[in-house]
Amino acid sequence: MSGLLVSLQDAVVQGVLWGIMVLGVYITYKLLDIADLTVDGSFALGGCVCAVMILNFHVDPWVALAVAAIAGMMAGAVTGLLHTIFEIPAILAGILTQIGLWSINLRIMGGKSNVPLLKTDTIMSRFIDFTGLNKQIASLVIGIGIAVIMIGLLYWFFGTEIGSAMRATGNNESMIRAQGVNTNWTKLLALVISNGLVGISGGLVCQSQKYADIGMGTGAIVIGLAAIVIGEVLMGRLRSFGSKLTSAVVGSVIYFVIRAVVLRMGMNANDMKLLSAAIVAVALCVPVVVRKLRLKKSYTEGGE
């Protein structure tokens, strides 16, 4: 029983830290209607950059996190430029960046596929030394704190003139262009902000698990989409923008809790990606099936 409790606690911590990535995915997927596959690469990039900054350059873990954010933003900018200036479809532009990042991430880690942070300071270890909390609670407090700050910042930003123009870009591009907004710029900026969040999330996960791994971002986009879907199912009735952002993080927590439970119930860990993919696929299929059934049902041969 206590084993389950520990793994559930772990799951909640992971869910919150990954939830910051989900906020990034929310911006591109829900606001701009772009499935940005850069995320898999930029998440690992954030982790790798963070680990190397701390281990090899001995910088402050908070500074390392900031560098991870900037690295993520640069990755988003590459996808954004490929998509806007060179008109490559968004999905393909994301895949290109993601594949390229695999090699870049290995270069950053000096050719190793795994960089452990065993004896170095992290944001979490410092917080533990300072407060005396246990490891999980400390990670949770930091994760929730950063998530709340990010949600607050995003809520503010999307209420500003630039943020409104960005939302309108996802809504109706021709309309907002007719109102004098350069939609290439808003899309690029959205991808930069989104991947900045993903980089932060990767950096936090790296510091929390005390290692960076070349494969740590694999499937991140699917986790992000699954978390958004779960969040919508649970909190879909809430309409305000702040609660929608919150639901993305909550969805992420629920996702990792479900994962912990099914693993606990004996599911092979290797099957987890299949389960995530199935959750997203079902969530995308259901509305279409419902619409088609309604259409069929509403047909009557004789009319009224």
Binding site: G159, T160, E161, I162, G163, S164
Partner: peptide, 10 residues
């Protein structure tokens, strides 16, 4: 329309 959009409230 036609004005520079900044970070003031939308």
């Amino acid at each position: 329309r036609g004005k520079t959009r900044g970070l003031s409230w939308g």
